[in-house]
């Protein structure tokens, strides 16, 4: 609930904004930002980075402009910038998950017998592909996949044009598809 004269009011009818009431921003979005970070790194790191995200957002609240994107993209953008400092840790995590999940796939005969492919069963392959993506491409796909942002929101979060998101996504999608063997295993499973 802090506003600076330099910021002026936010005139959206009925909308609250970081300029007026930052505690509501925290209440509404802390858990999801924490979850996003934890899924890319780990819970312990997420505790710190999520808190940092909201501190930075509070510090920079004057820069928030609803005309350039909503609060969620704004927060996800800050969180993604913070994640950049942990790029190596994240890549290690994806590689580790790739190995672990691959091992899980091979355990027991049931998986081979049923051939029921689930999202969990492709985790290893996708995690391996994520580790190999360029960070800028990985940010795009994970904002879409984990943050559930739209293309436009992802563009706002990263501060890049919509077309850039589209091209990065296309590039990343191709790599993910290759990792999956150029098929959609879930679709295969459902069709089969």
């Amino acid at each position: 609930m802090i506003a600076h004269p330099g910021s002026g009011p936010q005139a959206g009818a009925g909308e609250w904004s970081p300029h007026e009431d930052f505690s509501r921003v925290f209440d509404a979005h802390f858990a999801e930002i924490h979850r996003y970070i934890a899924r890319r790194l780990d819970t312990q790191t997420a505790d710190d980075l999520a808190a940092d995200t909201f501190l930075i957002a509070f510090r920079d609240r004057e820069r928030f402009d609803p005309a350039r994107g909503g609060i969620r993209p704004w927060l996800y953008g800050i969180a993604t910038n913070l994640l950049a400092r942990h790029r190596r840790d994240e890549v290690r995590r994806w590689r580790a998950l790739s190995r672990t999940a691959a091992g899980d796939d091979q355990e027991g005969p049931e998986g081979a017998v049923t051939a029921r492919v689930s999202a969990q069963q492709v985790t290893g392959r996708l995690a391996g592909a994520l580790a190999g993506l360029a960070k800028r491409d990985r940010d795009v796909v994970l904002l879409l996949a984990l943050g559930d942002l739209s293309h436009a929101e992802t563009a706002a979060a990263l501060g890049v044009p919509y077309g850039t998101v589209a091209s990065r996504l296309n590039r990343a999608r191709n790599q993910l598809r290759k990792a999956l063997g150029d098929v959609n295993p879930l679709k295969e499973a459902l069709d089969g």
Binding site: F30, R35, R39, A50, A119, L126, A127, L146, N184
Partner: peptide
């Protein structure tokens, strides 16, 4: 598509602990 699949395949994370929320 791959993005939806990715969203489901990446292991979920537990919600932040009350202590983490309180600290933040």
């Amino acid at each position: 598509d791959e993005i939806t699949l990715l969203g489901r395949a990446v292991p979920d994370a537990p919600p932040p602990s009350p202590q983490a929320v309180t600290r933040a």
